[in-house]
Design a protein around this nucleic acid. Sequence first.
DNA 1: CCTTTCAGTGAACATCTGTACACCGAAAAG
DNA 2: CTTTTCGGTGTACAGATGTTCACTGAAAGG
Lengths: 212, 212
Amino acid sequence: MRVESTAAETRQERKERTREAILEAALDLVAEEGLAALSLRQLTRAVGIVPTAFYRHFASIDELGLALVDRSFASLRQMIREARQGNPALSGVIRSSVAILVQHVHSDQTYFRFIARERFGGVPVVRRAIRHQLELFERELATDLARLPNLDTWTSEDLRVMANLIVNAMVSTAEDILDAPRERPEVEREIVRTAEKQLRLIVVGASNWRST
Amino acid sequence: MRVESTAAETRQERKERTREAILEAALDLVAEEGLAALSLRQLTRAVGIVPTAFYRHFASIDELGLALVDRSFASLRQMIREARQGNPALSGVIRSSVAILVQHVHSDQTYFRFIARERFGGVPVVRRAIRHQLELFERELATDLARLPNLDTWTSEDLRVMANLIVNAMVSTAEDILDAPRERPEVEREIVRTAEKQLRLIVVGASNWRST
DNA sequence: CCTTTCAGTGAACATCTGTACACCGAAAAG
DNA sequence: CTTTTCGGTGTACAGATGTTCACTGAAAGG
């Protein structure tokens, strides 16, 4: 293998580029009807390649689905990283977290839509992969929560339970935002307010947990 | 139209019976791959009728989907009615509510699975119908919550926010139960414990809401 | 320079899809 | 008893589907 870089595109680069094109086209198509209803032919037609060429990149649609899970959660992880940057002691942590969520839902619509759709809806193997990723996600969130004042005495199990509640609420919020009509921003603002209140309710519940 | 009842099946009864058979077969098939991937032919094959006969009962697959939404939520409503029967002042209201949920998820698996699958996953018109039903559901729950001690001073909007949080948590719980392996009852017990804790967390948060 | 590798091609296949149409036979109506 | 209604049948058709196979042509390797 030559290491020398050519002015034109190298073979690897080309392959990677069509692989990307397949993933992007798949995300678009899946947004309409779900992965289970995605046909290999309409996918390759959208990409601009012949049906059989697909198999040069993925062994099956299921494998494509798993690649989409990876890609979507990479985006989600990026979001969490941003949220963690903010001042953890800041009282506006709830407000800013929700704001970051909203922003990412907008900029990475297709990823969020894919996760929401396939979490319960889709092919078993993909559903399981998403479930697993969300579990990792909850675990991360639980360790973050452990650093908060009032929560340092909690058992890790209780933290997980709380993290699960938060994640579920946020996933629902994301779906609500995706379904909100673009031309009516007040609907979205209402969703945001609801999400903030729910988080606050959970936090208040947590601070008074052991005292009852 | 004669009102006289024949010993054999009347025409209406027969029609209703095959309609039921279509709905039941659809629920089974949709559990596998989702409504978007349901084909008219495999459906009618499962029922034991010829493809074209389907149109005697439904104008389209979408309409079938809406009928399934109705049917599934009828089951859900029955569940809520049961839960309401219990003593509202009883301290074990959380435990018994979750127990009722678990019991119904088991006895009406296909309905719950259908709702979970199509809530975010499916055809737009069905998704909207489910969303609407869940909204009605939250409204009902909100009025129930208003009767609780500490919550009688809450605004109806705050009650709705809380109801939304609870409904989301319970829907997730239902899905977790559906995905739990039958042969390992301890997994389900763990899910139940989590659900109970989450409800308790929400209730504790609610009782201390205004005081902060 | 010649050889190998390999992403993408294009035709062919058996199978499945939704829907149109004319038809049947028994229940309902009169 | 005759006529009407209507669930369900059977055939037919055009189109879409996943997968196979031998192929091409340019980049990579030596």
